[in-house]
């Protein structure tokens, strides 16, 4: 019951950036280049939700609180939602579906390639988010969903490469994602070590003894 309640609250929180953006549009609060501002803010939120999604498993490890998997799925879907809006704004609000200009823009802009790669991954993950496809895909599901780290890396490149040199903001996100990745790698290494320490040690001692 409490969990449910919390989940509703968090869901509402996840919609707030969108609400805030809508208010800013209605009040013409988006500055001198509102199309770019709108586009950038959606991209930023997609990236933030991606970071939050990636942070869930480490949080689970630290707090040893199970029941967070639901949140991971939810944040993942919000990542997908904001990324989709980001892409839709690019196609409609910015380019008004002039496909020839869009095609040239994408082909000639390597930084957008990485946005597209990230989006394709996020799209695939959103498609296979259900418990049913998780069961159906078996071990491949986990493999597929590990691609989220590639998506994160692609978004970081997508971000870095569009700038002329003022790299502080993407650096911040790159750092967060690296930390989260390093944490997971450490956990994996640690658990392998633990496994090795726990099982073979007894025998090792024995053989040592027998040598003596």
């Amino acid at each position: 019951m409490i969990i449910n309640n919390l989940k509703t609250k968090i869901t509402i929180l996840c919609y707030l950036p969108l609400l805030w953006l809508t208010v800013d549009i209605l009040l013409s609060n988006l500055g001198s280049n509102p199309i770019q501002a709108l586009h950038i803010r959606l991209g930023d939120w997609a990236l933030r939700f991606l970071c939050i999604t990636l942070a869930i498993t480490p949080l689970q490890t630290i707090t040893s609180w199970r029941g967070m998997a639901n949140y991971r799925r939810m944040f993942g879907l919000f990542t997908f939602a904001y990324a989709t809006l980001h892409v839709l704004v690019y196609l409609s609000v910015d380019h008004f579906f002039v496909w020839q200009v869009i095609a040239i823009d994408i082909i000639e802009s390597p930084y957008i390639w990485f946005g597209v790669i990230a989006y394709l991954i996020i799209f695939a993950l959103a498609l296979t988010t259900s418990k049913r496809s998780q069961k159906y895909m078996g071990k491949y599901w986990k493999k597929l969903h590990r691609l989220i780290y590639f998506a994160a890396g692609a978004v970081i490149i997508h971000y870095f490469w569009q700038l002329k040199g003022n790299l502080l903001e993407p650096l911040f996100y790159a750092l967060i994602i690296t930390l989260l990745l390093v944490f997971r790698l450490l956990v994996i290494i640690k658990s392998r070590q633990l496994a090795r320490l726990m099982i073979p040690r007894g025998r090792l001692v024995e053989t040592n003894n027998s040598i003596e």
């Binding site: 609000v93 380019h95 008004f96 200009v101 823009d105 390597p110 569009q162």
Partner: peptide, 19 residues
């Protein structure tokens, strides 16, 4: 090297206006 110069956003133009 990292982005196209084929089109431009004319500032002051509204939403849903082509570049």
């Amino acid at each position: 090297s990292r982005w196209s110069q084929y089109s431009e956003r004319v500032l002051g133009s509204g939403f849903f206006t082509p570049r």
